[in-house]
């Protein structure tokens, strides 16, 4: 790879050290979550909390998690919801983003203003009307209901519009000359080139819906549909506010998120290489 020679690829040692320091600071909560999950609850209640790794080591929290929490069910439910939301959001975002970025059509600015307006509306204000809509469409207490009401394409539309805008128009013109239909231009040119945006949008949508505690709590009542964040809240409570056990459960809950992240990461890179070849 010749790539390493370009100066955007220049390694700046001071910058790198600063970045690492910043990240160490950012990691404190994660560090606490992980190591405290191996301690008895009262040793993390103490202030300042006892954070020496492996001191008072115990597996009692994990034992409690596997005995008393439906981890696998909650995880599965969260995955069903979040994966669907991620895919749907990315699809809607890229189609609309493509239209906004590369097609001239009447009313474009009005529609785009609507996209921005949904982005700006405080979600907390909309909880009640949103629930009314869901209730009247009989969407409450079902996966498809949560999925439909969680898809929030506005940020994705904006992001993919910004991304696709910067793709060279010549590519699309060339495809057209080659006899590509409108659909073909989207599927053969726009979509492959915007994979980094698709990856980014899916990841955000995935994580956002994975952590969407309040809405999932409001929408889902049936215990069989309980999701990870809702389960976490119940679990801590029925364990006498046992924070260490909660931390153990959320440590377990973080592992799949990390795996998903790493899997999606490859997606970004792939999109980038396509772009580079074409450029």
């Amino acid at each position: 790879m010749k790539n390493n020679k370009y100066s955007r690829n220049y390694v700046s040692i001071p910058s790198t050290i600063l970045v690492i320091l910043l990240l160490v600071w950012v990691m404190v909560p994660f560090y606490i979550m992980f190591f405290a999950s191996f301690k008895p609850n009262f040793s993390i209640l103490r202030l300042p909390p006892d954070l020496v790794p492996l001191k008072d080591f115990t597996l009692v929290n994990y034992k409690a998690v596997f005995e008393r929490a439906d981890v696998f069910l909650w995880m599965k439910n969260s995955f069903i919801i979040s994966v669907s939301v991620a895919l749907a959001t990315a699809f809607i975002a890229v189609t609309a983003g493509y239209a906004f970025a590369k097609i001239k059509f009447p009313g474009k600015n009005v529609f785009f203003a609507l996209v921005m307006a949904t982005l700006m509306m405080p979600k907390q204000m909309l909880l009640i009307p949103n629930y009314l809509v869901a209730y009247n469409l009989h969407l409450q207490d079902s996966f498809h209901g949560v999925i439909l009401t969680t898809i929030a394409p506005a940020f994705g539309v904006f992001l993919s519009r910004q991304y696709i805008t910067s793709l060279p128009s010549t590519l699309f013109d060339a495809a057209e000359i080659d006899g590509c239909s409108e659909l073909g231009k989207f599927f053969r040119v726009a979509l492959p080139l915007s994979l980094p945006a698709v990856g980014t949008i899916s990841i955000f949508a995935f994580f956002t819906s994975f952590n969407d505690y309040l809405w999932q709590l409001i929408m889902l009542s049936n215990k069989k549909l309980m999701t990870m964040p809702v389960g976490l809240s119940f679990f801590g409570q029925t364990m006498h506010n046992n924070r260490a056990a909660q931390l153990a459960l959320s440590s377990i809950g973080t592992i799949p998120l990390i795996l998903i992240f790493i899997a999606c990461q490859k997606f970004f890179i792939k999109g980038a290489t396509v772009g580079a070849v074409k450029g």
Binding site: L23, R243, Q246, F261
Partner: peptide, 18 residues
């Protein structure tokens, strides 16, 4: 990137403790 993203997905119990 992963490390920078993690606080966003760490449970609030841990965040508050931290």
């Amino acid at each position: 990137k992963l490390v920078a993203y993690i606080p966003g997905v760490t449970c609030s119990v841990a965040l508050v403790l931290a």
